[in-house]
Design a protein around this nucleic acid. Structure first.
Lengths: 345, 345
DNA sequence: TTGAAAGCGCTAACAT
DNA sequence: ATGTTAGCGCTTTCAA
């Protein structure tokens, strides 16, 4: 029963009862729908306020068949790329009145599967996938076939769409910019450390790099390259290995900032001075890239833009205004020169 | 209508109809409740599988009056402390079959308010608050009075509980360990950079530091101290200011890792060699602390443990097994010596 | 301008 | 062992 006073568990019925109107009128007033007399409006608003009424989003979601959340799937929030992405996605989702449900799939494919099984299409209307490696493409497609909107929000291959709507960026262009920078600085003995297999997630970045190197008539052998995983530690180890084997390198291209920071440390531990004795360039421009000493020269990719466009695409998809073949492009990558690269002299 | 085949929008009714049983039996089979014959069980499971049925968590939540999510409120996921916290909280929440809803309140008190208003008690059963500064205590208390479980999961003052259930750690002890380390290494001219006002969030850490410094009969003047904000950039600026004014300092205590990393950079930019010319110690032990060069000597606080215990406390609270006065303590902070400190010689 | 009835998909309580 | 009834809190018809 409704009381005159504050009611911590007030439902729409309580408000209606006390305001002396029907639940429908309360609903209309609160959502600004329908026609309600100013007088009634005020009384309802007042009553709701007094009782401390707040609509139950779960009930609303059930009847509207529309969840108030978006699911964000990423491999590990501890990788500094993801917080930056998640923040932008969160803010954009809010603009569409959605909250963000986060899933860390890290090293546990089951976790992602379970999450999608449970959440997608019931708790969340759609899924934004930011995983770089280990994309569970088949499961995503299965979801899609169920009619659940899915967006891959960091797709690295603009020319090879995944059959799932995606937001992409020019990863080859990024690789080219990084390589061009080294070439322009006069480097001819350039190593490469890639945070994936040759044709894996960083394949585009690597291809761009190779294209420029080849055009500059620079000899590149597999001895100058290391394909590893996309982490600080793997970058560190790969650099130790590479620099020990090829101490004559004057520059290293790294496919991603996080391993590049590891490369910087490895160089320092091996006694290479950066950028005096060794230049390092990479791709992404995460926050720690500008906090290292020296600062990391890198090619910035439009992280926040991808997050925002990913959320927008998801919303479009839910409204039926986008298809499985939709590919959203983003701004061109941009070179950011900091202290880790220097002209060869 | 139910069909023999896969049905992307299958409800429990569809499964029941096709399996030739009541919805209740399906519900029981799927949740392993009640008594169901093996024969029926198999048929139901098979039908559900074939139709691709997945329970609607929203509907379940509504009728069970139990939300499938926990809300995590933090100031900015971009601060590397929070991803580490959020990951542990996420995993622990999963153990209680809850997903995590994330809210970045950063610099937008309204955002936090709006989030809590909407989410707490409707989409989420409870709220885990990890904000360090700017705690909206009044709002949290208001939620609590509504019967919504709220837990402050990183409380720095074990002796001054906030009137809201919390997880705390020995911040003074952490400050003492950091200071003791410097004193044992022979430092007598020690500066302090604190990421909050004197009696703000890092007040406990600072008090611990001061206690040891005073006991060691070291003179400390306000000229050796800087109170600033808890960020990389503020740490950098404060250190530049402090080191310019007091270049004779041989060590600096910083209340948190993130500003301490800024301090390391400032020292480097001013030509101080760390640890040769200046030792730096701080508190927390975030991942970047071990990735810097030199590695940051710091006092590790039990971040993951606080996240886990925070989630557990929330669950206890929801079950009525904890009260507003509950204070959960965590393991003692522990010194981690890396390369940023050296014995004075 | 307002209200009554129906039902979103599910489960609790009570039959049978 | 299985089914029926009722209803979670809300919104969507449709009627008054």
């Amino acid at each position: 029963m409704s009381s005159k006073l504050f009611n911590p568990a007030a439902t729409i019925k309580d408000v209606a009862a006390q305001a002396g109107v029907s639940v429908m009128t309360v609903s209309n007033v609160l959502r600004g729908r329908g026609r309600v007399s100013e007088e009634t409006r005020r009384r309802v608003l007042e009553t709701a306020e007094r009782q401390g009424y707040r609509p139950n989003l779960t009930a609303r979601a059930l009847v509207e068949r529309k969840a108030p959340t978006l699911a964000l799937m990423l491999s590990c929030i501890t990788n500094p790329f993801y917080p930056e992405f998640a923040l932008a996605a969160n803010l954009q989702a809010l603009k569409h009145e959605r909250h963000l449900l986060v899933c860390n799939t890290d090293h546990e494919p089951d976790r992602g599967t379970g999450f999608l099984e449970q959440v997608a299409g019931s708790l969340s209307d759609g899924v934004l996938v930011a995983n770089n490696a280990d994309l569970p493409i088949d499961e995503l497609r299965a979801l899609q076939e169920r009619g659940i909107p899915v967006v891959i929000s960091v797709w690295e291959r603009p020319d090879e769409p995944p059959g799932i709507p995606c937001v992409t960026f020019d990863s080859e262009g990024a690789g080219r910019l990084a390589a061009q920078h080294l070439v322009e600085y006069g480097h001819r003995r350039i190593g490469a450390i890639v945070g994936s297999p040759k044709h894996g997630i960083h394949g585009g970045r690597y291809a761009g790099f190779r294209e420029v190197v080849r055009a500059a008539k620079i000899r590149q052998s597999t001895a100058d390259e290391r394909f590893t995983e996309d982490s600080f530690e793997h970058g560190y180890e790969a650099a130790k290995d590479l620099l020990s084997a090829r101490p004559d390198l004057t520059a290293i291209f790294v496919s991603n900032d996080l391993p590049a920071l590891g490369v910087l440390n490895a160089a320092s531990d091996l006694g290479f001075s950066v950028p005096g004795g060794l230049s390092v360039v990479s791709i992404t421009d995460i926050i720690p890239a500008r906090q290292s000493r020296p600062g990391l020269t890198t090619v910035a990719i439009p992280t926040a833009e991808m997050a925002e466009k990913g959320v927008n695409l998801l919303v479009e998809l839910m409204a039926g205004r986008a298809t499985e073949a939709t590919v959203v492009h983003t701004s061109a990558p941009k070179l950011v020169v900091r202290g880790s690269t220097a002209r060869l002299r």
